[in-house]
Design a protein around this nucleic acid. Structure first.
Ligand SMILES: [Mn+2]
Ligand SMILES: [Mn+2]
Ligand SMILES: [Zn+2]
Ligand SMILES: [Zn+2]
Lengths: 144, 144
DNA sequence: CAATTATTGCAATACAGTTGCAAATAACAC
DNA sequence: GTGTTATTTGCAACTGTATTGCAATAATTG
């Protein structure tokens, strides 16, 4: 990607076009998958930039709407009894992004087709699925 | 749940029936949703147990097959450009549990029905979905 | 180029998870 | 019940990711 185009894009977003920022934006734009901060720091490890700088640039780019930032799942492990009916086999879960409550979804709620790169796993159903959004209660509290 | 039944269940699993272990097992068995270590520590905060003990008991129960332990998603945030075609709107992602690679899934691959507790969000499609399993490459490496 | 304001490096903090080790205790044989 | 032994516990330490304060530095603008 052209360096002056990157510069122009950043300026249009009211961000200064520093070398680190341009490197980060170029990387994310050229990537074919969502990248983590750690992956980006690793890819740019030969550059002169501190990893906190790269991190803050990602946040800045997000605020400016140039990148989307998502954390699917949570940094915590969850435990459920295998003795319950629903505990016997793995099933999809819904996690509320506001209150953190998790609910188990019946298996039938989901229909999924295989796609490039993960056809086998999805075909066999050997997967775990998580859906994230606002639960009905939190929707209610926000008057939605 | 009956205390002597808990004791019996633990002994059958070759685990000593300590008070902490019984409390943890009872809690997980009675829970209607998967609980995190933090939630369990909070629920048992009036008990005399250290949170590391509760943590280790959860791990023990998992090894014994009495609870299932899952971490849906990852503890990291991911960034993708909003300038890409696929970046314009949110879409499902597949995360390989072996190599950590993430791939974007086309929206059409997924059909989901609302369920108790999260009918609205799923109805509106205002959700993020993550599927986790072995990617085709990692399946291949394991000869599957 | 100088003045202004945003960005950077570095150190520190927060949190969930994980482990080592010595002290406490459950299980079991008397 | 008592003693013996292996398991479990408490506490402190450490990892990895995310996040922030602050003084030093660099990008912009006129
Ligand atoms: Mn469940
Ligand atoms: Mn994507
Ligand atoms: Zn909620
Ligand atoms: Zn893989």
């Amino acid at each position: 990607m052209n360096s002056s185009l990157l510069r122009q894009t950043l300026h249009a977003a009211n961000l200064r076009a520093t070398a680190a920022r341009m490197a980060v934006l170029e990387l994310v734009r050229n990537a074919s998958t969502p990248l983590s901060h750690g992956e980006i720091a690793e890819l740019l490890r030969d550059g002169p930039w501190n990893r906190t700088t790269l991190y803050r640039n990602l946040i800045d780019l997000e605020k400016a709407g140039l990148v989307r930032r998502t954390q699917l799942g949570e940094p915590v492990w969850r435990f459920e009894s295998t003795a319950k009916e629903h505990g016997v086999r793995s099933h999809p879960h819904f996690l509320c992004s506001a209150c953190g409550k998790m609910v188990c979804l019946p298996e039938m709620t989901l229909r999924l087709e295989g796609a490039r790169g993960c056809r086998k796993a999805i075909g066999q159903g050997n997967i775990e699925v998580q859906v994230r959004g606002l639960c009905d209660a939190c929707m209610g509290k926000r008057g939605i």
